[in-house]
Computed example of a mutant assay.
Amino acid sequence: MLAHKDLHFSGRSGWLRAAVLGANDGLLSTASIIVGVAAASAATGPVLVAGLAGLVAGALSMAAGEYVSVSSQADSENADLKREAIELAGNADGEFEELVGILRTRGMSDATARQAATEMTEHDALATHAREEIGLSDTLNARPLQAAAASAAAFLVGGLPPLIVAAIVPFASVAVAVSLVALAMLFGLGATGARLGGAPVGRAALRVAFWGVIAMTATYAIGALFGTRL
């Protein structure tokens, strides 16, 4: 008999959030910088320098922010695990009864809950209480370095296309070309994220693209207003 496998979108929430946010930020930040500087400049050089600087700074900022955030989460998880270990060592019977109570609230009879609690405790008491009481599991544990690397990589992947476009098209077409490419990618990014997450595709794509248009329009207007085009 083949094993039955269900597709659960919630299991993707951690990496999906980091990937979508990172790529979206990389694309939109870099494209907006390029469009704004292009509106304020008279040559391709400053545009590429600004875009590259924004790409690198943004990737490092994303990595640092994600690392700090997930590290704080990891610290909280470790503190909860230590506290749970102390409680198990000092009051094993009380913790067992607490586990039985949790299992009963999930629909088990008292006898079944006690049997399940006994077997789960014998297998791994700390992991069982961490999962059932605190909601922690190996698949959901905070991993700061992994999160930081994923965010930085996603930012770079999202930010490179507008920089490449700016480098290969004539300067007079940079703002328009980068805007169109960024808009198309934002649609695709929003649709892909929605599909992977099980959300409505059209609404998500339009939402991402809408805010992209707002950001690029604002930076272009600032560049045109305060720039020194010759």
Rank of each mutant, 00 (worst) to 15 (best):
A63V: 14
V70G: 02
G58Y: 02
A154Y: 04
A23Y: 03
L183V: 11
A74V: 02
I134P: 04
L2W: 00
A116H: 09
P162M: 08
V176H: 02
S109K: 02
T228A: 09
F187H: 06
V37R: 02
V100R: 05
P46W: 00
F187P: 03
E66R: 01
F171Y: 12
A59N: 01
H123C: 10
A154V: 09
A130R: 08
D110C: 06
P170E: 12
V174N: 13
R203F: 03
L48R: 06
A31K: 01
A153D: 03
G101K: 06
D110T: 09
G11I: 03
G101Q: 08
P46V: 14
L145Y: 04
W15A: 15
V178R: 03
I222G: 03
L60D: 01
R203P: 00
V208A: 13
S69A: 15
V174R: 07
W211M: 12
A43R: 03
V157I: 15
S151A: 15
P46F: 01
M120N: 02
V157F: 03
R114G: 01
A23T: 09
A172F: 05
A111H: 06
L189W: 05
A167C: 07
T228V: 00
G11F: 00
F187T: 11
R83T: 15
V208C: 09
N78D: 14
Q73D: 09
G36Y: 06
G14L: 12
G158D: 06
L196S: 06
L27C: 11
F171A: 08
L16V: 07
L88H: 10
A89C: 05
A177Y: 02
E132C: 05
G202D: 01
L189M: 11
V178G: 00
G223A: 10
L55F: 10
L136F: 13
G101Y: 03
A184M: 11
A199P: 02
D80V: 01
E122L: 09
A39L: 10
Y67Q: 14
A117P: 05
T112V: 14
G202P: 00
V169S: 14
L126H: 14
E77D: 09
T219S: 14
A166H: 07
A117Y: 14
T139L: 13
S32Q: 05
F210K: 07
G58P: 00
A38M: 03
A177N: 07
A85E: 09
